[in-house]
Amino acid sequence: MSDNPHKHKDDVSGVETTGHEWDGIKELNNPLPKWWLYTFYACCAWAFVYWIFMPAWPHLSTEGWTYTKGVLGYEQRQSVADELAAVQAGRADQLAEITTKPLVEIAENPALMELALAGGKAAFGDNCAPCHGSGAQGSKGFPNLNDDDWLWGGTLDDIHTTLQHGIRWEADDETRFNIMSAFGKDEILTPAEISDVADYVLSLSGTQAEAEAIARGQEVFANNCVACHGEDAKGNQELGAPNLTDAIWLYGGDKATIVQTVSNGRGGVMPAWSSRLDEGTIKQLTLYVHSLGGGQ
């Protein structure tokens, strides 16, 4: 084919063919349209200009593969960073207001609240979701933040304090701290007494058991548990002692789990976020968590 024995002049157009033939169809060797050719040359010229000014050619250096940076110093990573910085700068005033204003005032300001909830949601996904779940629904040992039951209080200030200082986070001097004793492991109560007190605790939320066991359990409860959980067993948010009469159980509401809880004690830990997040973010998180449906 390359030697063009088939090359000949087309009868109709008078143009020479390229010699390529497919099923009797031959290709005319027309010149390229001028506008197309000049556009092509212009693009070639532009490519050289581009190589000089913009990042272009990969090459090896002593530190491995790199590329020509171009004299304009353009970098996509940097442009993204610049755009993010510009967004932050645009919000700087409002974020400063969130940092300085009391929580209640932010909640009453729709514009600030909108920003705070959006920021809070993003910060929650980044920092809180691993334990509390992406929908703040919690799991065994990690409280559900949507409900109306709070271990350490559900007001804006309570949530804010919990976020700032954490729970049983020893690195923070002001952390919320209380320990539930391991009544079984430390041999404060006998296994029989623990079984009785578990029956009593279950009876508080309507699960019936042997009446005598409940009566014995009530006695054990009065002697050992009321200090934190209260005489009515409704808990004490000052001490992080849960309400034992409601339908919500952090670790589980069956007898085996309650026996385990009483025997070994519980002491969940939450980090103090003031050392990791800035005050503005903590406040946004506070408002977000408060808005989930259980805030008081």
Partner: peptide, 8 residues
């Protein structure tokens, strides 16, 4: 997410 929430 969550599908439903149990209240106290």
């Amino acid at each position: 997410n969550p599908l439903f929430v149990t209240l106290s």
